[in-house]
């Protein structure tokens, strides 16, 4: 464990909690892409099946359970409890355009053609594009609630910190994983446009609205 991975995990946890609280407190999921949340639930489900097969540490196990629990709770709040506030018309990204190519790529490019490894690879590739429905929805509505931008900021920051974690691990442990790194770079690049708007607008107290 290193400072980049720890702050990355805490940033990820913060994002997940911010989103859950936003929906719960405002009793509304307006502006939130349910499809992205479905993808995140799928990412955690396919990546954390090793909870059933191996124990790494209490931290690892507890965080995985929190991530999975919050992901499904968020999907439940969006599609069941606060379904009336779900903006389905603007959340129109076709999930099959992400899941099918990612599934195919995971079968072609992986470390080992075993069940858990393919699922892990699928989850890594899927996570890198899982935010697209959310970013697409914001581009369609032309704006985002400030609390939603904070959610996106911490979510984007987490994988950017993981990139530093991988540099650290390569330098100090001689460890690196090309699949996780490439997917992590792609994932972080997808946030660059948002990061720019977040820093130039939201941090200056303005509302995030497009076109910029």
């Amino acid at each position: 464990m290193n400072i980049f991975r720890l702050t990355g995990d805490l940033s990820h946890l913060a994002a997940i909690i911010i989103l859950l609280l936003k929906i719960w407190k405002t009793r509304s999921c307006a502006g939130i892409s349910g499809k992205s949340q479905i993808l995140f639930a799928l990412v955690f489900t396919t990546r954390y099946l090793d909870l059933l097969t191996s124990f790494i540490s209490f931290y690892n196990t507890i965080m995985k359970l929190i991530y999975i629990g919050c992901a499904y709770a968020t999907v439940y709040l969006i599609y069941m409890k606060f379904k009336a506030t779900y903006d389905g018309n603007h959340d129109s990204f076709r999930l099959e355009f992400l899941v099918v190519p990612v599934g195919g790529l995971a079968c072609l490019v992986n470390h080992d053609f075993s069940f858990l490894e393919i699922l892990w690879t699928f989850s890594i590739y899927l996570e890198s594009v899982a935010i697209l429905p959310q970013l697409f929805m914001i581009s369609k509505t032309g704006e985002a609630e400030t609390i939603t931008t904070h959610y996106l900021f911490f979510l984007g920051l987490y994988r950017a910190l993981y990139l530093f974690n991988w540099i650290w691990r390569f330098y100090f442990e001689g460890f690196f994983d090309m699949i996780a790194i490439v997917a992590g770079v792609v994932q972080t690049i997808l946030y660059c446009d948002f990061f720019y708007l977040y820093v130039t607008k939201v941090l200056k107290g303005k509302k995030l609205s497009l076109p910029a």
């Binding site: 995990d9 090793d50 790494i56 995985k64 892990w120 001689g174 460890f175």
Partner: peptide, 10 residues
């Protein structure tokens, strides 16, 4: 030898 892929990571 560290693991081939970061299974110790979240």
């Amino acid at each position: 030898q560290p693991p081939s892929s970061p299974k110790d990571e979240l």
